[in-house]
Nucleic acid binder design. Sequence first.
RNA 1: GCGGAAAUAGCUCAGCUGGUAGAGCAUCAGUUUCCCAAACUGAAGGCCGCGGGUUCGAAUCCCGUUUUCCGCUCCA
Length: 487
Amino acid sequence: MSKPNDELFKNVISHAKEYGFVFPSSEIYDGLSAVYDYGQNGVELKNNIKTYWWKAMVQLNENIVGLDSAIFMHPKIWKASGHVDGFSDPMIDNKDSNKRYRADQLLEDKIDRYDKDGKTDKAEQLQHDMDEALKNDDLPRLKELIIAHEIADPVSGTRNWTDVRQFNLMFSTQMGAVADDADLVYLRPETAQGIFVNYLNVQKSGRMKIPFGIAQIGKAFRNEVIARQFIIRMREFEQMEMQFFVRPGTQKEWFEHWKAMRLKWHLALGTGPEKYRYHEHTKLAHYADAAFDIEYEFPFGFKEVEGIHSRTDFDLSQHQKFSGKKLQYFDPEINQNYVPYVIETSIGLDRMFLLTLINAYVEEDLSTEEKQDSRVVLRLHPCLAPVKAAIFPLTKKDGLPEKAREIMDKLKINFNLQYEEKDAIGKRYRRQDAIGTPFCITVDHQTLEDNTVTIRHRDTMKQERVDAGQLENIIGGLVSWKNLLSL
RNA sequence: GCGGAAAUAGCUCAGCUGGUAGAGCAUCAGUUUCCCAAACUGAAGGCCGCGGGUUCGAAUCCCGUUUUCCGCUCCA
């Protein structure tokens, strides 16, 4: 990583905290690892990103509808999806080679070796001990066995092991007052399954015809082994997902369709195309027959922001199998029943948030020959800006505050506004620049005479004088979603 | 998880070989100015990340721990 980029990233994190965008969680208690809170400006920006996505996906596509499914779901869902079995292995690390192994795998290898060496009784004993330990989730016992049977790391050759730990990326908790295995529920590690299990409800109640999509925004939870790089990888995060159900055989064209559509959504915000790239998965997940990531060039390199996956009929078929309920669709066009194929678009909202912030953050040098000057400005798209406009009386007296309040009161129903009269006007402009407010409306002495105000534009720092009565139309036009969505 | 670095005011940081905790910016109140960081006066803000140890005395030295960043690892 180059030094200036490192610097930029640090500055953005500081800025995010100082101006109420992102705070470390539980900060007064030393923080909680890889969990963050969104502050007063952060929540506005985040909500605006959600709105942009929701409008683009749900409102503008007649065949896509929304959903808000619960975070808790029936535990069997995670068996069907493959999350339970795929991610509950007892792992152990060798401290010398820093390699991680499945503890049961190491023991199995040892049993095989005993067998080969003719030490059948030893093999049987170990097999029995291991099964017992695995059944009881007795992790310390597994380590005892590894030590007792003198198992060494094949790489380093040493027996310098860490404790055995259970790695399951799903958080679990108890449902009901009495602790019991049957009550174990998980916090969803992805929002997609909530869509799959409701697919038939939505299709029937909404009289949806294939192809159609279901969109959802919601929290997901992953107990990452390592979570780092600010809000890039958090243990609690938010996804914006859309599952698009298609006729088998047409998945390839829909995959291409959504790949293109989703990149278009990103680029409409004005981000330079050179900041984005597609990344094709060569190693596909068990459920996918094609997968592309949309990556953004963060200061620390290209990172996935959104995934477009062709998930085949894996999920619906699995749920059909595990639930015993038919999840088929009767396609009147071809007079056939089938389990639809699925194209998924899945974007990490928190990453999108960080992308937006980093992309908007600019340190500008405004120095002239006479004096040094600079400002930090967030060049957010006006649709995404937390505060749409700020209203300033030029001075604190002569009735200017009253006039400014009057204008403010008329506009605040439609727009998120801020009123400020403290400090010199230039300082107030700069403060708004720092949180990305695109427009500042100033009430001066002339306002009292002819009811005109000035609008100062964030990016150009230029002003224009307009009739106060026109403000609603002018601001409304400048921050309208049409500017983003009718491209 | 391993290795490296760091943690002092809201932010950025100074605080030397141990001796009562500082600056700039930001914040708040006021005076003044009145369209782009003005000035002045005043105020507030710190368990020096946390816990232990050494010492007459620790922000400073030692140990542990937590959090963050970087590299590796992990990321169906």
